[in-house]
Amino acid sequence: MTRYLLQRLLGFVFVILVVSFITFFLMWKTPGGPFDETNMPLEPAAKANIIAKYGLNQPFYVQWAKYMIAAVHGDFGYSFKYPGQKVTTLFFQYWPNSLLLGGLAVLWSFPLGAVLGIVAALHRNRFLDQIITVFALITVTLPSFALAFFALAIFAVDLRWFPYGGWNPSGDPKTLVLPVIIFGLGTVGSLARYMRHGMLDVLGQDYIRTARAKGVSRTKVIVKHAMRNMLVPIVTIFGPVLTNAITGSAFVEEWFVIPGIGHFYLDSITNRDYPVIMASVLIIAVILTLTYLLTDIAYTILDPRIRLT
């Protein structure tokens, strides 16, 4: 286990270095910069001043190395888009909103998705199963921005049940309702489909048949034997869902005007806000890598047959 963790840690460092280098290289190669020439071209002296101000006049690998050294020390620089604002300050201003949005979405969508999946499996090929399958397909295939558009058009513009965007968890909890629902819908669908598949798989196993043959009740078999063996696939899907919840949803946050890190990240790309792009990519990469590591460790706890080597 220790050897495995060390290996993963080394892999983690390697992944972060590669991801950061590729991101930096792509930013460097992308036309445009932290300035605007929309109306008229910049004067050469003005461009030189801007480039010098942001330290972009050095070779990109030097910029990358400097950035990474500073990042290791917790210094992610200052935003180009929001002059005077530290990237870390901005990040921690945004992140709690993403965490709240993602947390609430997971809170309702994960249990519901799991229950729907199990119910569908237990009613295989019957009407309830078909309804759940269609619902799951719709929520998985419809992109969140389309759902957001229609939800806002119906519930905010036409019916006026909810505010049109905005984010005011303490002052107006109604601002949370639509984004939390839209953000969670995809998870419900994915999990329902996944759980249904997993449950059907488990229910077909010999030990389930044996238990039933020994006279154990159907409910007891499902709760005690099938559900326990479903924990591994639940953990498998919970990793990415959790990562998604922690790192925010760019589309949902944009549409509902939520100051979360998904919004932050999307804006930074449009604005060529290099320090923010780098910080966002690094943080997301770290969270993803750690989540997968934890998921793998969780496997060994839930299923002793699984070994990490």
Binding site: G11, Y194, G198, T309
Partner: peptide, 13 residues
């Protein structure tokens, strides 16, 4: 790269 060996992985995507 990491490897996850399992005696029965059929049920898991």
């Amino acid at each position: 790269s990491s490897h996850i060996s399992r005696t029965s992985s059929k049920m898991v995507l």
